[in-house]
Design a protein around this nucleic acid. Structure first.
Lengths: 468, 468
DNA sequence: ACAGTTTCCCGTAAATGC
DNA sequence: TGCATTTACGGGAAACTG
């Protein structure tokens, strides 16, 4: 039997998006002596919520009662799986709306309740249980924030239903937190963070306290307040990197070729004594979801460092990152185009490292190993009553690699990433507008054309002027 | 007051997508003597439809009654505008479902009815009118088919409500049809089709009959049956080109630089006596939504023609087409990279033609002149009764051009389109796997690297082998 | 198995609300 | 006004359905 739908956001349980279907399952943990009648289960959203606890109220739009069945893989247990459940916000609550102005939507915790009632030997028994705290979002853009909440909650408390958790969230030790962060990378990208990467992240988040692994990180510092000088929080930044890896850098990440979180100072220290052309890969610190490479050059005695403008998902979907590294060229005034990337830090010849990755599709497969011990935190059963347990089901949907061999009469064409390095003197004013039609093929063709190319200001302004 | 929503598919009236909001307006054309009470209008979908006429039934999900108001720009008329209307399919019709197996969904015509009733001087008057035939779709992928139907209907009949039209659709003369096609380009792209382009399209659609402008084109040939040897119909092909122009080629199209519909034979005839490096732009005939350039070369006496693999929307969103033309390079064995494109046919120096377009953003503005006389066909009022007229409202939402000037410490980077031309002898087996780390910068660097690049089969298979 | 059609839902952009 | 949150819906893909 195939699954008719995928629940909300695979691999991120306990987050429900309004208007999107989700699935949940309840199982009776004891065998009942008499089950020759139907046991009906009803699921309710935010049942018995203390008034004013939440600023938004939701209800289950779809059918919320179902009869229990004996499970397929018959251990004799009764269970019921609700599919196609959907949440909708109650609008226009007459009374109190938005008591908790302090909490953001992704900090507001909710829960699903399950109720059943049966009679055995003249005795009526009420069963009830509920889920771990849930976060409700209305747009995928809130997913990172929601996931931060789910992680923080389950990392720091064993309480099954402390919906006021984010009223006064506890701190996490860097010890605990770094383990969760590494787990995130191993779950979603296939390879966790190594010691150096964790140290670098710790320095970014904690500054001088990083050496002390008992240092307590506040919830706010982790996910709410912006990194000084930036417009996003630590977690938003890290999550954007996770997404970039998931979609465009899986193979490179899993080969451990991305140093990732080096500061610019550390970067120079590492590279300065290396062979010219040695480069390392790191994520952009100033923009969300970008990756760049920095390489070292020796300029008659001086050591010089260069970094490309970070590549973001848009650029990477036009050209895979490994191909960018292979094909990248720099044009310096009057010098032939050259690829400055020779050795991946510390000293791996570029093609030795990246050769096997060239022209390989984004390679969706081979990723995301499904389980890790910390994941149990998020999937542990919730034994509210003695009789019922609760599971949020999720699916993983791995597509397969497909490789195409184009066969047609056209000349195939690729894209090449290229930079122009200008010397400080802005001499040689580009003679861009002169047509000189039958250009003589020569080794400086590309150079000449690109001197025009880079004069964005001039060209664009002209375009604007002629357009308006 | 700002518009709270955009109706279904701007600029394509008479097509409604289920689950997406649309807007409609009714106006009373006569002034009533006594309007000191409220005149309520009700709108119904497919009212009084002969049973079995349609295979799908829909209803208006949202509020469908509203009271008439005096129009803003007070000519004293009463009118009512229904907003946020939404259509949903009736599921599980007990009786007949799908009598008309012959018609596709986009050929099935529906209509909106409007009813009002008022009493004047003791006399009760019923008002009723309805819309022009509508096409209902469930996904944007059906939009081209739906639009073909709307065009064909309004081109070929003046009947206000012949819902059986596509049971036996009339033919169109090439005269009529070509005018509509040109109008499509002028409406959606800003420039219509010139005589040559229409002739070329006529030849593609009609073959030898093209010379006769009275030749009758069948509905099936226009939009239903596939072009021989292809997997899409004539209209699907042409519409994919319209979409490509709208999103990525506006400026180039509006400068009239795209010849577009030349056959490969004609292409050779045109180019063969031209200066080497003369090129022309045409759309792919084998794939939907692709554009390519063909250039002529002289190879000691022989005339040679080359075409690049067509660029599709994905590639074009990574790099604007004008920039592709400027930067395109070909690497032939052992020869320095060169841009083979010198003159736009017949003899315009490349940079003279495309210079002003380089680095200009996809330029959404400057497009789509809003009206054309043929458009009136689609917006003519529908005088079913004497008292009411009907309008489908639509908005245009032109974004503005924005040009960014990047200012940051990174080296900017661009993409360059490049092809490798192999001589027939498959000599020089690429020594791709040998690292040779500190590559000597030299004028054949690029060549050497690209010899590796093109061996897709080898590299990919290796990647697969090592991956599995 | 298959093609025509619909549903699903991410991700961007716009609208809304506070 | 600005920011937080929701709504809208195009577009690709999966699911459905005769």
């Amino acid at each position: 039997e195939k699954q008719p739908c995928m629940p909300t956001h695979p691999q991120k349980p306990l987050i429900i998006k309004t208007g999107v279907q989700f699935t949940t399952k309840v199982r009776l943990l004891v065998k009942l002596p008499e089950v020759d009648y139907q046991l009906k289960v009803k699921t309710t959203f935010d049942k018995d919520l203390p008034p004013g606890r939440v600023s938004r109220q939701f209800f289950i739009l779809t059918n919320n009662t179902k009869v229990m069945d004996i499970e397929d893989y018959s251990n004799g247990c009764l269970s019921v799986e609700f599919r196609h459940l959907q949440l909708k916000e109650k609008k226009y609550i007459n009374g109190t709306k938005g008591l908790e102005g302090l909490l953001s939507v992704t900090e507001e915790l909710h829960s699903l309740s399950f109720e059943a009632c049966f009679t055995v030997q003249g005795l009526t028994i009420d069963l009830e249980t509920c889920s771990l705290p849930l976060v409700v979002i209305s747009n995928v853009s809130q997913l990172p924030g929601g996931w931060a909440s789910v992680m923080w909650y389950n990392l720091l408390t064993d309480e099954p239903r402390n919906l006021a958790f984010f009223g006064n969230p506890p701190r996490a030790s860097w010890n605990q937190l770094s383990e969760v962060l590494s787990w995130q990378f191993s779950t979603f990208a296939g390879r966790g963070l190594n010691k150096e990467q964790l140290t670098m992240l710790g320095e970014k988040l904690l500054g001088q306290h990083a050496s002390c692994s008992d240092y307590q990180v506040s919830w706010s510092k982790f996910s709410k307040e912006n990194i000084p000088g930036k417009t996003f929080s630590f977690w938003m930044w890290l999550d954007s990197i996770l997404e970039l890896i998931k979609k465009h850098l899986l193979a490179v990440w899993n080969e451990n070729y991305i140093m990732g979180f080096v500061s610019k100072e550390m970067e120079r220290t590492l590279l300065k004594d290396r062979e010219p052309g040695t480069f390392l890969l790191r994520f952009s610190e100033s923009h969300l979801g970008g990756i760049t490479f920095t390489w070292v050059e020796h300029d008659n005695g001086d050591v010089k460092f260069n970094s490309v403008e970070p590549y973001t998902k848009n650029r990477l979907s036009a050209l895979p990152f490994a191909d960018i590294i292979r094909d990248y060229k720099v044009i310096s005034d009057g010098v032939v185009p050259e690829n400055p990337l020779k050795f991946l830090y510390p000293d791996i010849p570029k093609d030795e490292a990246f050769g096997p990755l060239y022209n390989s599709q984004p390679s969706k497969g081979k990723s995301a190993k499904p389980f890790h011990h910390l994941e149990l935190i998020l999937f542990r059963a919730c034994f509210e009553s003695l009789l019922v347990d609760w599971i949020v089901r999720y699916n993983t949907n791995l597509s397969h690699i497909s490789v195409k061999f184009p066969v047609h009469p056209y000349i195939p064409s690729t894209l090449i990433p290229i930079s122009e390095l200008r010397s400080n003197s802005s001499a040689t004013p580009p003679s861009c507008q002169s047509p000189e039609p039958p250009m003589t093929p020569g080794e400086f063709d590309m150079l000449n054309e690109h001197l025009c190319l880079i004069d964005i200001d001039t060209v664009s302004l002209q375009a604007l002027a002629s357009g308006g």
